[in-house]
Nucleic acid binder design. Sequence first.
DNA 1: TATAATAATGAAAGCGCTTACATTTTTCAA
DNA 2: TTGAAAAATGTAAGCGCTTTCATTATTATA
Lengths: 341, 341
Amino acid sequence: MKGICVFKYILNLASTIYDIAEKAGVSIATVSRVFNQRENVSERTRKKVMDIAEKVGYHPQANAQGLASRKTNTITVVVPVISNYFFMEVLGGIQDKLNSYDYELTIFNISPSKNTFDQVEHVLKRRASEGCLFISIHLEQEEWNLLEKYNIPITLIDEYFDGFDSVSVDNSEGAFRATKYLLDRGLDRVAMLSALITSKPIQSRIKGFKKAYEVTGKKFSNSYIVAGDSTYRDGFTERGGYEAMIKILTINPEIQACFCASDIQAVGALKAMQDMNKSIPIIGYDDIELAEYMGLSTIRQPMRDMGFFATQNLIERIENPKKAVSQTVYTPELILRDSTE
Amino acid sequence: MKGICVFKYILNLASTIYDIAEKAGVSIATVSRVFNQRENVSERTRKKVMDIAEKVGYHPQANAQGLASRKTNTITVVVPVISNYFFMEVLGGIQDKLNSYDYELTIFNISPSKNTFDQVEHVLKRRASEGCLFISIHLEQEEWNLLEKYNIPITLIDEYFDGFDSVSVDNSEGAFRATKYLLDRGLDRVAMLSALITSKPIQSRIKGFKKAYEVTGKKFSNSYIVAGDSTYRDGFTERGGYEAMIKILTINPEIQACFCASDIQAVGALKAMQDMNKSIPIIGYDDIELAEYMGLSTIRQPMRDMGFFATQNLIERIENPKKAVSQTVYTPELILRDSTE
DNA sequence: TATAATAATGAAAGCGCTTACATTTTTCAA
DNA sequence: TTGAAAAATGTAAGCGCTTTCATTATTATA
């Protein structure tokens, strides 16, 4: 015991609420009140407690607080692979919002090698956070149903399920607008530079892509949809775009323009055109900051706004769990720049 | 009480170790053992417990576990602003490493509006994690000293302090190599497209930049160091690069080539050159994936590796706190591409 | 079959905090 | 001054787990 005390003293840490209470000559309840900014503490004792706490570097331990108060003051963001432009921007928006609140941010990264549902369920089961933001997590209807029972506030970003609040962009509409613009310019053979067609956003974008053909009455061919071979990050990479554009330029030279599934792929596509010494108009998707500086026409997704709004929504639900479920769908916007000149 | 029970039943959740123990007809100690994969539990009871847990969706609560075991199984990454290419890549490396371990990842974002030291100290005080990775967190010597007493495993990335393990890149050397390459090509007036000179990496890079002039014996002028006016993200943005290059092209037209402080600024610089219809060789810094596709010559920082290695280092320290402190410095590499052709 | 080992389980004491409720102190009107 | 109301503080019972140590069941050994 003595050993331990000496140890504590030397390292100046690992003190508990009891140590502070004792040194300040008050009860632990008072110390607790001070740290929880309760009103009913006299200024004198508040100062006394804080001074001592300051001196020994004391701060309530997160776990103990969480257990006792049944609150964690933490929001968990669940994402597949963090290093991706879309998530990064959305995360930026989340943080902008969180900056004015007292929540801690935990990021849970879904590992591609394990089952997504199990991992998501694990996050909920642990009850380590007040609420969750799921970014681009796609589950089956019945799986979403199973998650409902955990009764934890959840807001979905870039996904839809009627049991949870959601914030998404109309992917189909975005693809439609881009493609229609190209078709309306008099071009007849516009390609879609796709990523893995198993990916959800790609599926919706393909819908919009086809719809543009229908609406304009132009002849559609499945060969207009082309993807690269690399599957890393579902093909949403510079490389994926490069490969796909090479294909277009060599195998489908009849193609006159191209709608790309993401700006980052468009960058690869641009390079491919340059390497092949050819050039066709292209439109990207996302409007990442780069796009402006690369003169890339694109479909703007309000990524930051989505993160910001979803977070606001989640906080509202945490504070008022009976709030009606809301589905927010943003409409993407066509931004014209050099790449379609 | 009855109400609560019914409630629990309906929602199928919020059960505790006691509920499971009761239903399985064992003690809570046994349930605990099952969930902590202890050896000494018979296969029969293990199965019985797991079946029941599965049915009611039980899983130990993180806080209670943490409090009782004094372990959190969490690693905290502290970053200033998450949405930045460098951090994103480093984070990717961190996650690659963490995927094979059982640690949860918490990201703490330093808010620019509050004092950095206080925020960092807060993270340590809460003791919500086993160890921390600090990415590009720059403090004063004495502040680092103060943090040592918390006795929490910390690995610094992109910063150096002799009390903690650190993983960094020789910024000065990188700038030196880029600049020297340009100077060696026979150019005499090479500029540095800088970001905010208050930023640490910029300071080191300026050193390397000047050293190249010294070594080559060419005449250096302070006017060769130019930055944009926007201060968002310390100027490490496309916009910052654009502004700076416009300045170079208009105010300092004698400049023959340019070393840019980051690839992302180089993107802006490229655009500026295009807009001004001029072109000089440029070299970026970082080698983000984009650089290859934009044909940007650059200084490669092994960002992913740094994250990966730092994480490994941290885990080692968590497992063996007495391990000797190590400082790892990577040497950046010059990658030549079109932008210096 | 008896006994010693060994494996499986349980009882109970915390972990460091919050908080309802009880108690003491202070304030202030009469 | 006095007493009631208000403010400040204390007491103690958890929160849901882990873990030590004691106990019981099982297995192996002679």
